[in-house]
């Protein structure tokens, strides 16, 4: 196995000063890389040469997550992948980009396949081998929901990571249950009385996961890689069913510049639309505070899928999205009180 064995103290990494805070990949003031993604020895579990689009958020999220899991398990890791962009761009025969045991079965069954893998290793007495299932929002929250729920309620020893880019990107950007209100997709075009996706639809799978009472649920965002790493580490320190949903922009599907992937993710984070939190056994245990430095408008403006929101007559759409952000800020108490 080529995975390097590295142990970084997750969030406890010493931040000597405030130069870069804990927002950059590494704190330059620390003598050695204080995050795995800043380490020269990171595994690069998802290798170069994969065929993800330029600026792919999912590719990035997956490498961050799987590298971290490899680190926490000394490389004793198996990855189960749902059908989707991540699967297609990483393993077109004869070029696999995965440097870890990896299996893809179907679109909707990653959670069940992973359950089987976990049980298989358990019964073989190899409980040191840990299992991650991963997929996009379509494979996870729509077609994979049954298997996912089963995995949760059986409390299988699997960490399921959903890379949420809010639509079916692999098939050409169709609406999923994670597509936000007003967003344009190929199946929610900006025409008619309610341009883009309807408001009042969709679901929160982290909350559904919490309702299963599983040991650990977290939301993460590729714009906060240290937090993502810490959450994967935390998840890997726990046995039983765990769920992490990582917010990953899709330049192609969202109509953003390929260079703006992190920027857009950060805007979403800082305007309150994508709260970051952790929950254990159904109860929220931590919420990442935000400094609301970005407006919902700025976030939407970066993306062509929301272009119609700024047309005359659609002001109510912007207001509706702002209301969602405001509701999040209230519900999760997102803003640091001074």
């Amino acid at each position: 196995m080529q995975s390097q064995i590295l142990h970084f103290p997750a969030k406890e990494a010493m931040i000597i000063g405030q130069q870069t805070g804990d927002r950059t990949i590494s704190n330059r003031l620390a003598d050695t890389a204080d995050s795995l993604q800043g380490a020269a020895e990171r595994s690069n579990a998802l290798d170069s040469g994969h065929r993800a689009c330029q600026g792919c958020g999912e590719a990035l999220g997956a490498r961050h997550a799987i590298d971290t899991a490899l680190d926490t398990t000394d490389g004793e890791l198996v990855v189960v992948n749902a059908t989707g962009c991540l699967e297609v761009f990483s393993t077109p025969y004869p070029q696999s980009a995965w440097r870890t045991p990896w299996i893809h079965s179907l679109f909707g069954n990653a959670a069940a396949v992973a359950s089987g893998v976990a049980q298989s290793f358990r019964i073989q007495g190899k409980e040191n081998v840990r299992v991650i299932a991963q997929g996009g929002d379509g494979g996870t929250t729509d077609i994979g929901m049954g298997c996912l729920s089963g995995m949760f309620e059986r409390n299988e020893d699997v960490l399921y990571i959903c890379y949420n880019n809010e639509a079916y990107m692999n098939t050409g950007v169709q609406r999923s249950s994670q597509t936000p209100g007003a967003a344009r997709t190929a199946t929610t075009m900006p025409v008619g009385e309610h341009p883009g996706n309807r408001f009042g639809t969709g679901k929160s799978v982290p909350k559904i996961a919490m309702a299963h009472g599983i040991p650990y649920v977290a939301t993460a965002n590729i714009a906060n890689p240290r937090d993502l790493e810490a959450k994967v580490r935390k998840a890997m320190s726990i046995r039983g069913a765990r769920y992490i949903e990582v917010f990953v922009p899709c330049p192609l599907g969202w109509g953003t510049a390929s260079c703006d992937t992190i920027k857009v993710a950060r805007q979403a984070l800082n305007c309150g639309l994508t709260p970051l939190y952790e929950a254990e056994y159904g109860e929220i245990t931590a919420v990442n505070k935000i400094a609301p430095s970005e407006t919902v408008g700025a976030y939407l403006k970066s993306q062509r899928r929301f272009a119609h929101v700024f047309k005359r007559g659609n002001e109510h759409q912007l207001e509706a999205i702002q209301a969602i952000a405001d509701a999040n800020i209230r519900a999760f108490d997102l803003v640091e009180s001074k």
Partner: peptide, 25 residues
């Protein structure tokens, strides 16, 4: 602390952002 507030404008400070955020390694 004041020195650490320097943003190192224009010159790499090895924060690893480019390295860590490259989707293609």
């Amino acid at each position: 602390q004041e020195a650490q507030r320097c943003m190192s404008c224009g010159n790499c400070m090895e924060c690893d952002n480019c390295y860590g955020f490259c989707p293609d390694n």
